[in-house]
Amino acid sequence: MTHIVVVGAGYSGLAAAKLAARWTSADVTLINASDRFVERVRLHQLASGQRLRDLPLRDLLRGTGVELVVDRVTAIDADARTVHLAGGAPVGYDRLIYALGSQADLGAVSGAAEHAHTVVTPERAVRLRERIADSTVVAVVGGGLTGIEAAAELAETLPALKVRLVTGGALGDALSQRGRRYLRAAFDRLGVEVVEHARVAEVRPDGLVLDGGGHVAADTVVWTAGFRVPDLARDAGFAVDERGRMVVDGTLRSVSHPEVVGVGDAAAVRRPDGLELRMACATGLPTAQHAVRALADRLAGREPARPLRFRYVNQCISLGRRDGLVQFVHADDSPREAVLTGRLAALYKEAIVRGTVVFERHPTIPASV
Rank of each mutant, 00 (worst) to 15 (best):
T2S: 14
G8T: 13
G10I: 03
Y11D: 13
L14Y: 02
R22M: 07
T24D: 01
T24E: 02
L30K: 11
N32L: 03
N32V: 06
R36S: 00
R42N: 13
H44M: 08
H44Y: 12
G49M: 07
R51K: 13
R53E: 15
P56I: 07
L57C: 05
L68G: 11
V73G: 07
A80M: 01
T82S: 15
L85G: 10
A86L: 15
G87S: 12
G88M: 03
A89M: 10
V91R: 01
L100F: 06
G101W: 08
Q103R: 10
A104T: 14
D105A: 15
G111L: 06
V119C: 01
R124I: 08
R124C: 10
R129E: 00
R131P: 10
G144K: 14
G144R: 14
G147W: 03
I148F: 01
E149G: 00
E149K: 00
A152D: 10
E153Y: 00
L154A: 02
L154M: 04
A174H: 15
R178E: 01
Y182C: 09
A186E: 07
F187L: 02
E193R: 00
E196R: 13
R199L: 14
E202N: 11
V203Y: 02
V209C: 02
G212Q: 09
G213K: 09
W223G: 02
W223L: 03
R228Y: 04
P230Y: 09
L232E: 02
A233V: 11
R234Q: 08
A236N: 10
F238Y: 15
D241E: 09
V248M: 04
D249N: 15
T251K: 06
V260F: 05
V261E: 03
G262K: 00
G264D: 05
A268Y: 12
A268H: 14
R270G: 09
R270N: 12
E276F: 11
C281T: 12
L285F: 08
P286M: 08
G301T: 11
G301M: 12
G301Y: 14
R311C: 00
Y312I: 13
N314L: 11
C316P: 03
I317Y: 13
G320S: 12
D323G: 12
L325D: 13
L325Q: 09
F328I: 05
A331H: 13
D333M: 04
S334E: 05
K349E: 01
A351W: 12
I352A: 07
V353T: 14
G355Y: 10
V357S: 04
E360M: 15
V369I: 05
